[in-house]
């Protein structure tokens, strides 16, 4: 069973020289250097929590952040702040009988949402299960499968991303209120308020949250400049991030990137408050289930089998 588990990652041990250099530097000046790569900046240090700012303050902050981002990423980045639409609560559906495990959603998400390329940050994890084995036995799922071709015989796949819990443990956990649930149901993070304690990661039952262990690395020409403050604007080192239902797209009336890209159409999206939406239709008419219902997180992410894949009726 050695196949599935990565060993302690290599390349993170210090080599002796850098270590000594670091030690010397540390000895010479036992002062803590500012955290960000950019110079320390009182405005950003003192920036208020997003929800505590008024519109004027937000505007000012966005102005500053856009400037900072332009310098940092060598590209003009627009940071939107579109608010939740009234009467909308987003929901997601995923047809497990159709997913072929191609991971196109994963990479579309990376592209759309400015995830770090090295180290790789993925907001979606596609799990592979062996057919006929214990169903949703996560422990026997495989995350690092790499076949020549998908779908593979005798396997099926289950993509997992933030389930946008109605009752999100991550929000409960966060000591600083840096993460919260928006009125349209999207759980968001203020990347300028998060202290990087990772308590939310411990709390999330779905492994949805990612931490920027290093400064995100995105080639300038691959940056998506259309961003949202609470969504895909490039993140900082040392803060958490996760799927936001593509807040920058969905609040503009578009589908999430992963819905758009899924070649087999396994992914569905819509407004849970609209009784005529496709998402409501499938919740009402398909056999849906949600992951780890026993946690009472009340996810807004519905898995279903549009078609029988088993012998059962």
């Amino acid at each position: 069973m050695s196949k599935k588990i990565r060993s302690n990652p290599l390349g993170i041990e210090l080599n002796r020289r850098t270590f000594l250099k670091g030690a010397a530097a540390g000895l010479a000046a036992t002062v803590v250097r500012p955290a960000a790569a950019g110079a320390f900046n009182w405005d950003s240090f003192l920036q208020k929590h997003f929800r505590e700012m008024n519109d004027a303050e937000i505007k000012k902050v966005i102005g500053r952040l856009e400037k900072e981002a332009a310098v940092e990423w060598k590209k003009n980045i627009h940071i939107g702040t579109a608010k939740a639409m009234p009467g909308v609560k987003f929901g997601y559906g995923l047809d497990l009988s159709r997913c072929i495990g191609c991971r196109r959603c994963v990479y579309a998400c990376v592209d759309e949402n400015n995830q770090s390329r090295t180290p790789q940050v993925h907001w979606i994890t596609v799990l592979r299960f062996k057919k006929g084995e214990k169903w949703i036995d996560l422990e026997n799922s495989e995350k690092y499968y790499s076949p020549k071709q998908v779908p593979e015989k005798d396997f099926f796949y289950m993509p997992v991303q933030c389930q946008q819990c109605e009752n999100p443990p991550c929000v409960k956990a966060c000591p600083t209120q840096a993460t919260w649930k928006e009125p349209d149901g999207i759980v968001v993070i203020d990347y300028n308020w998060c202290i990087g304690c990772r308590y939310c990661m411990a709390a999330c039952p779905y492994g949805a949250r990612r931490f920027n262990w290093a400064k995100p690395n995105i080639p300038a020409d691959e940056i998506n400049p259309e961003t949202h403050y609470l969504g895909n604007r490039p993140r900082y080192k040392g803060v958490v991030e996760k799927c936001t239902f593509c807040i920058q797209r969905t609040r503009a009336g578009k589908y999430p990137a992963c819905v758009e890209v899924c070649p087999v159409g396994a992914r569905k999206f819509g407004n849970l408050l609209d009784p005529k939406s496709e998402i409501r239709y499938l919740i009402e008419n398909k056999r849906v289930f949600r992951l780890k219902e026993d946690m009472n997180t009340n996810p807004k992410f519905y898995y279903f089998f549009a078609t029988n894949i088993t012998q059962a009726d």
Partner: peptide, 17 residues
């Protein structure tokens, strides 16, 4: 009562685009 008609919603989203 938070429900809104799909049409209206589309309109809202379109306006946002």
């Amino acid at each position: 009562n938070t429900e809104i008609k799909r049409r209206t919603f589309l309109k809202i989203s379109a306006a946002a685009v």
